[in-house]
Design a protein around this nucleic acid. Structure first.
Length: 182
DNA sequence: TGTCCTTTCACTTATATAGGTCCAGCCT
DNA sequence: AGGCTGGACCTATATAAGTGAAAGGACA
C-alpha cells in the first residue's frame, strides 16, 4: 500500500542537561555538539542510523527511522545510555510520541497534473511546475498532505499514524478512479 | 521618537518524489 | 574548445525542538 521512508518522533526526559559535558563523555562520532551552529546535540549510534537531537531542556527528537518499531527501539537505546551514565533515574516511561510519518506510494499510471488539479479541486491543490514538479494535494480531512508526480509516484507526509497515511492514499486512489471513470 | 515586549520566522535534521541549474570531469 | 555525463544542490511537503534575529505593536 504505502511504504514508510521516515518517521519523526519526539519525547521529553524532564531533566535539564549539560550538553557540553554529555558530548564530551559520549564522544565522537556518536555525539556531535556545536552550539554556535545549532542548540541541539546530535546522537547517532551507528553510521546511517536514525538521528537523535537532544536539547538542554531534556526534550529530544528522533528522525530518519523507517518504522515505528525502529523509532521505539532507538528511544530505548537512548534511555539506556542516559540511564547508565546516571543522567536519568530509570529508563521508565517518559513522554514520547510519533509526530510525522513520511511515506511513498505508487499510483501505477502517468498523470496529467493540470487536469488532476482541476479534478481534485483547485481549493485543495497547489501546482506550479515552474516552482516544483509535484502537485501538492491537501485532502479535506486535513490529516496529511500528498505530493503527486506525473510518473504516478506519490509522497504522503504529515500523518500522525500509519493508518492515517494509508487512508489518505486510499482516498486519493478512489478519487482518481472516479475521475477517470467519468 | 525611543524603549520594551511579543510575535514570527529561519535555522537544522530525516525522507521520498522530480525538474531545473550549475559545475567538474572526461572524451572527441 | 566544445559537447556530454554525472553529481550536487535548489525548489516543496510535514514534524518536533531551542536560539537568535527581525518585525510589529504598545506605551511613555
Amino acid at each position: 500500500m504505502v511504504e514508510i521512508v521516515n518517521v519523526v518522533a519526539s519525547g521529553a526526559l524532564n531533566v535539564e542537561l549539560d550538553l557540553e559535558r554529555l558530548a564530551d563523555d559520549i564522544g565522537e562520532p556518536v555525539a556531535c555538539y556545536d552550539p554556535d551552529k545549532y542548540p541541539g546535540m546530535y546522537l547517532r549510534f551507528e553510521e546511517d542510523a536514525p538521528l537523535i537531537t537532544v536539547y538542554r531542556t531534556g526534550k529530544f527528537i528522533i528522525t530518519g527511522a523507517d518504522s515505528e518499531d525502529e523509532s521505539y527501539s532507538l528511544r530505548e537505546q537512548f534511555l539506556s545510555l542516559f540511564s547508565d551514565m546516571g543522567v536519568i533515574e530509570e529508563p521508565e516511561d517518559k513522554w514520547f510520541a510519533i509526530q510525522n510519518y513520511v511515506c511513498t506510494g505508487e499510483l501505477e499510471q502517468n498523470l496529467d497534473l493540470n487536469a488532476l488539479a482541476i479534478g481534485l479541486g483547485l481549493e485543495n491543490t497547489e501546482y506550479e511546475p515552474e516552482q516544483f514538479p509535484g502537485l501538492v494535494y491537501r485532502p479535506e480531512s486535513g490529516e496529511s498532505v500528498l505530493l503527486i508526480f506525473n510518473t504516478g509516484q506519490a509522497v504522503i507526509t504529515g500523518a500522525r499514524d500509519l493508518q492515517t497515511a494509508e487512508n489518505s492514499f486510499k482516498e486519493l486512489k478512489t478519487r482518481l478512479s472516479e475521475l477517470f471513470k467519468s
